[in-house]
């Protein structure tokens, strides 16, 4: 097939991709020059061109914060725990749902676990506060079975767990659906053949289903590495309080409080750039991992 023949057949595809490329260039690449404010004492009145340059000062300030160690490690711990819980939970849920025989049952569960995804953290925060408060329904239930009530949102022992669990509850439905979609791509003939050969449910999951979605697992897990500094700003902002700053304060919430005192565009820019830098690094690593273990390549 000559190039001309190829183009004659394929040109609609190239036309279709144009809006996407324009979008990415316009909204992802064009604004990138804005990162210069991370190195400026930016004032909107002076603009990008005339704001004074201050080099690494914003980064130095960020890293020299007395709380930096604390907010950085809180961010990492919460974000990584969330990634692990979310991926593992989603795989397990997807496998369980995939084995469910009644379509009605599967659809219902799928919808129910997907539902919290559509609620904002402001709404969920209010609900969780009521459920988890000292006199809330969870503690009342614990008391009625003779267990000690806990301050789920107010104690440094429990706060991270509460954040991870509630984050899991909100996001796992979405991840599950991605895996369920991957599962449908497995050829049923394989399952039938294995069944005829005498493989039980667990054997079939182990030898057919899991290998079948391995590329998806590796790919999603690897890509989620890019989120390793995204511990969930809105969620923590609605749930935390000064009593749990020690275990719950993350980079984003801290910078938010800095911004409350006075808008510090440059510092926010520096934090964004720092997070993007780490994210970029991890994306590169995860791309290599995805290639190595799942054969995933773009080119």
């Amino acid at each position: 097939m000559t190039f001309k023949q190829y183009m004659k057949r394929a040109w609609p595809l190239y036309v279709m991709i144009v809006p996407g490329i324009v979008f990415v260039l316009l909204f992802r690449y064009y604004p990138m020059y804005g990162v210069v404010i991370a190195f400026q004492d930016f004032s909107p009145a002076k603009g990008f061109a005339r704001s004074p340059w201050i080099g690494w000062e914003n980064f130095e300030f960020l890293f020299s914060l007395p709380e930096f160690g604390r907010i950085f490690s809180n961010t990492l711990i919460i974000a990584i725990s969330k990634i692990v819980a979310d991926q593992l939970g989603a795989i397990i849920l997807a496998l369980l749902l995939n084995e469910a025989r009644r379509i009605f049952f599967r659809r219902t569960i799928q919808t129910l676990i997907y539902l919290p995804h559509f609620l904002s953290w402001i709404v969920l925060g209010g609900i969780l506060l009521d459920i988890l408060s000292a006199g809330g329904i969870l503690n009342q239930a614990l008391r009625s079975v003779g267990m000690e009530p806990q301050l789920w949102l107010g104690s440094n022992d429990w706060f991270r767990g509460t954040v991870i669990a509630s984050g899991f509850w909100k996001s796992v439905g979405f991840s599950t659906i991605v895996y369920l979609a991957a599962l449908t791509a497995i050829n049923p003939v394989l399952h039938e053949a294995a069944a005829i050969d005498g493989a039980g449910r667990f054997r079939r999951i182990w030898h057919i289903t899991l290998p079948g979605i391995r590329p998806t697992i590796v790919l999603l897990a690897a890509l989620s590495l890019g989120d390793v500094l995204q511990a969930g700003f809105e969620q923590i902002l609605t749930l935390y309080s000064p009593a749990v700053y020690r275990t719950g304060d993350i980079i984003d919430t801290y910078v938010y409080r800095v911004g409350l005192i006075s808008a510090q565009y440059s510092l926010a820019g520096a934090v964004g750039l720092f997070k993007s830098f780490i994210g970029f690094f991890l994306i590169v690593i995860s791309y290599w991992l995805a290639d190595r273990f799942a054969g995933y390549r773009i080119l």
């Binding site: 506060l129 408060s133 000292a134 006199g135 301050l151 949102l153 107010g154 309080s241 000064p242 009593a243």
Partner: peptide, 8 residues
């Protein structure tokens, strides 16, 4: 005071 007043 509520045991968890400070979470409100």
């Amino acid at each position: 005071l509520a045991p968890d007043f400070f979470t409100f």
